[in-house]
């Protein structure tokens, strides 16, 4: 018996959303490395048709929403999420899911996760100064009542190090949306969420060496199941 060697037709159509604000190439390279067949597109039709979406992003929240609006991508992204298609958000791609941000003015987000985006304080409650942006490796931890089984972090150990670059953090209204938390010095914040088809993290799994690639790999496997 001959096994099919070309699975490009059966693999899900994954689109990495290009809105002129992000380093898409590292995300695409990570996808390729773990066998996710993803293409980069800024076209609303591609995004509407896609089986699964990846929203990466580095930069300012307001600019990001303006770019998404200019490209007419807000409605297709929300529709895709509401149609229960798998969604992976990274860094700014996590923050944009929320209702609003106060970064450089007041901006509305996609509003699919209840909560806000806020800037790191310059100091923690115990007067420790925080350099902003936070750039570097930090630990991800489980939070009360959440385990990472059946999420792309199923192989991630509690306390594993991931690579972060950000000045703002998300504050989900519903504690059950929080998948993992991270402490910047003694300032604890939500570093990942999971809700139905949405999985989104503040860190960059594509820049977190082998442990980050495992998260892509698990997400890739989960979408095979979800879309087939």
């Amino acid at each position: 018996m001959k096994l099919p060697t070309d699975n490009t037709h059966s693999s899900p159509d994954v689109v990495i959303i290009d809105y002129n604000l992000n380093n898409l190439f590292s995300v695409k390279h990570a996808c390729q490395h773990v066998g996710i067949n993803a293409r980069i597109s800024a076209d609303k039709n591609d995004i509407a048709k896609a089986d699964a979406l990846i929203l990466p992003g580095v930069g300012a929240f307001g600019n990001a929403m303006q770019n998404l609006e200019k490209l007419d991508l807000i409605a297709p992204i929300i529709d895709s999420i509401q149609a229960q298609k798998p969604f992976l958000g990274i860094c700014l791609g996590l923050q944009l899911l929320f209702e609003e941000s106060d970064e450089f003015g007041h901006y509305k987000g996609l509003g699919v996760i209840p909560g806000q985006v806020q800037r790191f304080p310059g100091q923690t409650d115990t007067q420790q100064s925080l350099k902003v942006p936070f750039i570097g490796w930090n630990e991800v931890h489980t939070t009360s009542g959440k385990n990472w089984n059946n999420t792309p972090m199923m192989n991630t150990q509690d306390g594993e190090y991931m690579y972060f670059v950000h000045s703002n953090f998300v504050k989900p209204t519903a504690p059950e949306d929080i998948l993992c938390v991270t402490k910047y010095k003694d300032f604890e914040y939500c570093s990942g969420i999971v809700k139905n088809n949405i999985f989104a993290v503040q860190f960059h799994p594509e820049k977190s060496a082998q442990k980050g690639l495992e998260i892509y790999q698990n997400w890739g496997k989960s979408i095979q199941v979800q879309v087939s």
Binding site: F25, H29, H33, S208, A209, L213
Partner: peptide
């Protein structure tokens, strides 16, 4: 490098 090295 970017194709095979997954750190910044």
């Amino acid at each position: 490098t970017a194709r095979e090295i997954f750190i910044p």
